[in-house]
Amino acid sequence: MHHFASLKLNGSKNTRKMINEQYPKIYLYRRLVQAKLFIDAHYLDNIDLDNIADEACFSKFHFIRQFKNIYRKTPHQYLIFVRIERAMELLKADIAVSVVCYTVGFESLSSFSRLFKRVVGITPSTYLMQQQIIKTRIVESPLAFIPGCFAEKYGWLEK
């Protein structure tokens, strides 16, 4: 009940209409979104997914199924995905594979490399090398990456 009270406080006429007619599962959605944001914020920690289900007031089974409905991944798969995505960003910033591995919350280099390859298609070290090559090319000839019409408009072509 207190959920509803707090909602009423900040609910506009539109919001109430939406909840009544088209948005009956609003609480369910809010809890699942909170769980997803929790993973986004705490992917580094040793997250216990059972805890997240408890926090979200779901049984573990129900939680996993509902989460997958929305995000197309189980919470565990999603956690791995967030870590790998973050790893890609760090590798792009030219940080060594071993450092990246521990920075994004993996405990072993081999499991990191295996999972990275499964998600991205290449190993972290190949990815790092590719990114270094792309970066060098961008620094050497940025105009190769910028459509000419824009470059001309900006006046970058004369430089």
Binding site: Q22, Y23, V33, L37, I70, Y71
Partner: peptide
């Protein structure tokens, strides 16, 4: 994939919505 979940998440992150998810003929 899911406009209600995405709406809730973006709103939580501070994105300003001018219309909440609403069913239209071609989707929500």
């Amino acid at each position: 994939n899911d406009v209600y979940a995405t709406y809730e998440e973006l709103k939580a992150k501070g994105v300003e919505f001018t219309k909440p998810p609403t069913k239209e003929f071609y989707g929500t």
